[in-house]
Amino acid sequence: MKDKAISLLQELTEAHSVPGHEDEVRAIFVNELEDCGELSADRSGSVFCNLDGEGPRVIVAGHMDEIGFLVQNITPDGFIQFLSVGGWWEHTIIAQRVEIRTRSGEKVIGVVGSRPPHFLPEAQRRQLMSIDQMHIDVGASSRQEVEQEFGISLGDPIAPWSPFTPLQREDWFMAKAFDNRVGMAGTIQAGKILSGGARPNKIILAGTVQEEVGLRGARTAAIHSKPDVAIILEGPPADDTPGFSRAESQGRVGGGVQIRLFDPSAIMNPRLAELAIRTAREEGIPHQVTVRRSGGTDAGSFHLAGEGVPSVVLGVPSRYIHSHNSVIDVNDYLHMVSLAVALVRRLDDATVKGLTRFL
């Protein structure tokens, strides 16, 4: 399973899928799961695979999009101005390579321009440059060349360019978009395992759109799928690097699957969260529990759907997310898949009804 996980993570992280343009990840989802169940999509572009079964409807979901940019303007001398889709810290953007996907599907490599320090006064070197002051250089000499020869148009999506790379430490990998390609890979692999055995429920596997710009796809996905329980698979930020207190770390790379209880977007159903923790303990799955002061996931939309959907988030801690290069331990990913599968298998009708029995 590890070799397949690594191969799938490479394929997914190297795919180009910024919010509203999730086609490449959607195609991987369909290709991997078309033999497992019935495929469908909602009108926002989220995609689903329904596995045969009886009982409560359990959705296992990850979001397909990654943070990126859009072409906002092309200058007369051929430089591209851009805007962000998703949350960026501007310090991480300057001098990085990016990949522009044209309407025809071609990819054009460029670099976010940086001014050499020779041309910067001392005070300016310490200033944070905003995105609207930046440009992308694709090696063109005019707007006409960018549009007619390179095929780039206003509104074209731009993703970071960062190949999937093994690190020196065994099972550690660096890539862009582990937020949330770990969730997409986990949804696919957990779904394949669950499609082959007995379980007390009906499973909906889902890839949602536009999570990075306000949890948008999960809203329509919940309407389309009508789940009784939602298990969200994510790539949350690790907090085990310099500047964090190791004693207070709740997202250590190599520490196991992360079980999130709270963030500003959602209070997880306490009974479901406790079931996840108990399942991890009883199954011997390394795990870490987290309560987050910031951030949000698709649980923020799923838990408010209809009359309410009990939700929990399982994650793979990743260093340096929302940048060109993030780092994971693939064993944390494997633990996430194991916990998702074990948790789903415990969600029978009585258990699911008990999650929302308040009277």
Rank of each mutant, 00 (worst) to 15 (best):
S7Y: 02
L8R: 12
L9P: 10
T13I: 09
E14W: 11
A15N: 05
S17A: 15
S17K: 03
V18N: 00
H21L: 01
H21Y: 15
E24R: 12
V30C: 10
V30P: 03
N31D: 15
N31A: 15
D35P: 01
D35R: 14
E38Y: 02
S46I: 01
F48C: 06
L51M: 10
V60H: 03
M64P: 00
E66L: 04
F69L: 09
Q72V: 00
T75M: 08
D77S: 14
D77L: 03
D77E: 14
F79S: 03
L83W: 01
V85N: 01
I93R: 03
T102C: 10
T102S: 08
R103T: 12
G110C: 10
V112I: 15
S114F: 07
H118M: 08
F119A: 15
F119S: 12
E122C: 05
A123P: 00
R125M: 12
M129R: 14
M134P: 10
H135R: 15
H135K: 15
A140W: 08
E145N: 04
E147C: 08
E147S: 10
E147T: 12
Q148V: 01
G151P: 11
S153R: 13
S153G: 06
G155P: 05
G155N: 11
D156W: 10
P160E: 06
T165W: 06
F173N: 11
F173T: 12
A175D: 10
F178M: 12
N180V: 03
G183V: 02
A190S: 15
A190Y: 04
K192C: 11
L194K: 07
S195W: 05
L205V: 02
G207H: 00
E212L: 00
R216M: 08
G217A: 01
T220Q: 09
A221F: 00
H224Y: 01
D228V: 02
V229K: 05
I231M: 02
I232N: 03
L233W: 03
E234N: 05
E234M: 03
E234K: 08
D240G: 09
P242M: 09
S245D: 15
Q250M: 12
V257R: 09
Q258Y: 01
I259L: 11
L261C: 11
I267N: 08
A273C: 10
L275Q: 12
L275T: 10
V291H: 09
G296Q: 07
D298E: 13
D298Y: 02
S301A: 15
F302W: 12
F302I: 05
H303I: 00
V309W: 02
V309R: 03
V309T: 12
P310N: 08
V312C: 09
V312E: 11
V316Y: 04
P317R: 07
S318G: 13
I321A: 09
I321Y: 07
I321E: 10
S326I: 05
V327P: 05
V327Y: 13
D329A: 11
N331E: 13
N331A: 06
S338K: 15
S338P: 02
R345A: 00
D349Q: 09
V352M: 03
L355W: 07
T356Y: 07
F358V: 14
